[in-house]
């Protein structure tokens, strides 16, 4: 890989990442009035995030067993409205513990 090729590839990547982020923000300056479209856009984060988490989360660690344990603990903490950081750390520790137990078996 030459330096020049890497720089060009990086620029291409940056461009196709920035374009979809910037176009709607630059173009849609006014509030959308259509109730369906408005509701769609307000619901959208939850639909997208849910689809991003499942089932990918079960493959985010060394084994689906430890990942499932992490998901369980995260769900419980989130149910009781713990903050983002608490849930993230809790989930991570749950995986660590599960993987440690798995090595003992």
């Amino acid at each position: 890989m030459t330096t020049e090729a890497l720089l060009v590839a990086t620029a291409v990547m940056a461009l196709v990442t920035y374009l979809p982020r910037v176009l709607p923000l630059a173009i849609f300056r006014r509030k959308i009035q259509n109730p369906f479209l408005r509701s769609f856009l307000l619901y959208m984060p939850y639909g997208i995030l849910a689809a991003m988490i499942f089932p990918a989360v079960f493959f985010s660690t060394n084994s689906w067993i430890s990942a499932s344990f992490g998901v369980l603990i995260s769900l419980v903490l989130a149910w009781f409205r713990r903050g983002l950081l608490t849930v993230a750390i809790g989930g991570t520790f749950a995986v660590l513990i599960a993987e440690w137990i798995l090595t003992l078996i």
């Binding site: 660690t61 992490g70 998901v71 989930g91």
Partner: peptide, 9 residues
């Protein structure tokens, strides 16, 4: 799993 846990939260 950290980022996914955050999404769950």
């Amino acid at each position: 799993i950290a980022v996914y846990a955050m999404f769950i939260a």
